[in-house]
Amino acid sequence: MLTDTKLDRLGTADELNAAVALHCRALRQSRGWSLDELAGRSGVSKGMLVQIEAARTNPSVGTLARVADAFGVTVSRLLEPAQDRTVHLSDAEEAPVLWRGGRGGTARLLRGLSEPDFVELWDWRLAPHEEHVSDDHQPGTREVLHILSGVLIVTVGTEEYTVGPGQTIDYLADRDHSYRNDFDTPTRFLMLVCMPPREYDRRVRPPLPR
């Protein structure tokens, strides 16, 4: 069984929750949106948004992605204050773990950029026989996966692809997709997510292939 996804970063979940609360509230108010409006655009319930803005919950990675899509920002924008900087150097251990699987797998958000386009870099690890089913992202989102070790089964819509060490796969992620390790050894892969730099309202989503 998968346990989707509590914010976790070296014991500083409270700091991350506070950052998400601050940015979510500021981004919503700067747009003049009510909580009902954000709930409609993101597909996240008003009750959950109230909890997020009060820093009283650990939102899942799926919830964060939906909120970020609605605002037209990256997930990392919700986790840390915007800073003007030429260079940003950090250790992998400093990056937040935004997903934990029931068998020990993790997904760590290494970095996110908001300019010139929205890009996120993730370090994923799936334990043997572990799976993550992802929400569909906003139209035009593309993911690039590079397998470092193990074998990964990637499902996009109704098609499955087996990707081995040293191989790279990219695909449109604005439809149903998942990552699965069917084998007895762990799988580790890097993921690059490239998103259109715009706000996204799920209520007016165009139909897409499943």
Rank of each mutant, 00 (worst) to 15 (best):
W99M: 13
P116T: 03
D123K: 07
W124F: 15
F118W: 00
L110E: 04
P128Y: 10
A107I: 10
G104T: 09
R100M: 11
D123W: 07
E115D: 12
G104C: 10
T106A: 11
E130W: 07
W99T: 02
E115C: 00
L98G: 08
E115K: 11
R100F: 00
L121M: 12
L109C: 09
L121A: 14
L113R: 07
L110D: 01
D117L: 15
E131N: 02
P128L: 13
W122E: 02
V119F: 10
A107V: 12
E130Y: 08
E115L: 13
E131Q: 14
L109N: 02
S114M: 10
A127S: 15
V119N: 00
V119M: 13
E115A: 15
E120M: 08
G105P: 02
W99F: 15
R125L: 14
P116M: 04
D117I: 15
R125M: 11
G105S: 08
A107K: 04
P116A: 02
E130N: 09
E130T: 08
R100H: 14
D123N: 12
L110V: 07
W122N: 01
G112W: 04
W122L: 06
W122Q: 06
R100L: 08
S114K: 01
A127W: 07
L110S: 01
G104W: 07
D123R: 11
G104N: 10
R111K: 10
G101Y: 06
S114H: 08
W124I: 05
R111V: 05
L113C: 09
V119Q: 03
G112K: 02
W124A: 05
L98M: 14
R108E: 05
E115V: 13
D117H: 13
S114L: 10
T106I: 14
L109D: 00
R103H: 10
R108W: 06
A107R: 06
G104F: 09
R100G: 02
R108D: 06
G102M: 13
G101W: 05
G102Y: 06
G105I: 09
E130Q: 12
W99G: 03
T106D: 07
L113I: 11
D123I: 04
P128A: 12
A127Q: 12
A107M: 12
G104E: 07
L126G: 00
L110T: 03
R111M: 13
L98C: 09
D123C: 02
V119Y: 07
T106Y: 14
P128D: 09
R100V: 08
L98I: 15
P128S: 12
